[in-house]
């Protein structure tokens, strides 16, 4: 337990170089993609002279390293700049949109955990049975189903057909909790299906491994009840795998949100970064990447802490 502060300290130290590295890589990749934001800014009415003027006006004629350096210098002072396309402060854009993405991702993760883990346990404890076959087959299907297709099917039936859920949009959770959860349900379900499948498969195989271990066989020989063995020894041993897996799923949910937000017209961070990347609005892309890197690192840190609590050996590794 005493190693926990050291673990947190290590992770925090890693944060700075990772942020610099990630934002620089994203910035460089944006520059590698053909296209010039000045062309977008000049718009439908552009002339060649106007494009040149815009390049100078926005500093786009500066060397890449200078552009990145200027951005980083301002970011260190807490100023993430303004969108090239709409002049909106980047920090404001992120503050408006990130909560919607976090809500969908969290909601989705909860649904996936509540369904995926029991399915995995059910299949692992009945290996070779019809239930196992059914769970593994459904899980394979869940992994293969494209979330956008599922989203459209859900909207067509549950929104346009039965009018149970809104077809588009998002509501702020703090202002209208019921409306926010209703709006987020279909996107969360569409996103959750893949995660449910992944969790069920991974929990199943991890649990099968534990259940067939010598240690577990010894416990059974000692006459412990099957339920007690499953809860105290089986699931506890699987929990480290499960936590790591959930941490990885957070990244998956954030990337999956890009498509789902488009289908449901949700103003989230996913659609923001996709729109900005296509239009090479680099201050916005950099800002969102910065925040997402912090979130991913924070989630990984939380996973490490929980793992250390469940398995003290993890803190020293």
């Amino acid at each position: 337990m005493s190693r926990l502060p050291a673990l947190i300290g290590r992770r925090l130290w890693q944060l700075l170089p990772i942020i610099i590295f990630a934002t620089f890589v994203v910035f460089s990749l944006l520059q590698l993609v053909p296209g010039d934001p000045a062309v977008t800014l000049a718009g439908d009415y552009a002339s060649k002279e106007r494009i040149e003027e815009i390049r100078k006006l926005y500093g786009l004629d500066q060397p890449l390293i200078v552009q990145y350096g200027v951005w980083l210098l301002h970011a260190v002072k807490g100023d993430l700049g303004k969108s090239l396309l709409s002049s909106a402060p980047v920090i404001e854009l992120i503050a408006q949109r990130l909560p919607n993405t976090i809500l969908i991702a969290t909601y989705s993760l909860i649904i996936a955990t509540l369904i995926g883990v029991p399915l995995g346990v059910l299949a692992a404890t009945r290996v070779g049975s019809r239930i196992d076959t059914l769970v593994t087959s459904v899980a394979s299907l869940g992994v293969a189903l494209p979330s956008f297709w599922l989203a459209i099917i859900l909207v067509a039936n549950l929104s346009l057909g039965l009018h149970l859920f809104p077809a588009t949009g998002a509501k702020p959770l703090l202002v209208d909790p019921k409306g926010a959860l209703l709006s987020a349900t279909l996107p969360a379900v569409a996103l959750a299906v893949g995660v449910i499948a992944e969790l069920a498969r991974q929990v199943r195989s991890a649990l099968i491994e534990v259940l067939s271990s010598q240690h577990y066989r010894t416990l059974r020989a000692k006459g412990l009840s099957p339920m007690s063995m499953l809860w105290k020894h089986g699931l506890r041993n699987v929990s480290v795998t499960l936590l790591t897996l959930l941490g990885l799923q957070v990244n998956r949910l954030f990337s999956g949100a890009v498509v789902i937000e488009a289908v449901f017209a949700i103003p989230g961070a996913g659609s923001l970064v996709a729109y900005s990347a296509i239009n090479k609005d680099f201050p916005v892309v950099q800002g969102v990447v910065l925040v997402l890197v912090v979130i991913v690192i924070a989630v990984n840190l939380a996973v490490d802490i929980f793992n250390a609590l469940l398995d003290p050996r993890a803190a020293s590794s």
Partner: peptide, 8 residues
């Protein structure tokens, strides 16, 4: 999605 918003 815009069309679906009107239909809904």
């Amino acid at each position: 999605t815009a069309v679906r918003a009107v239909v809904a």
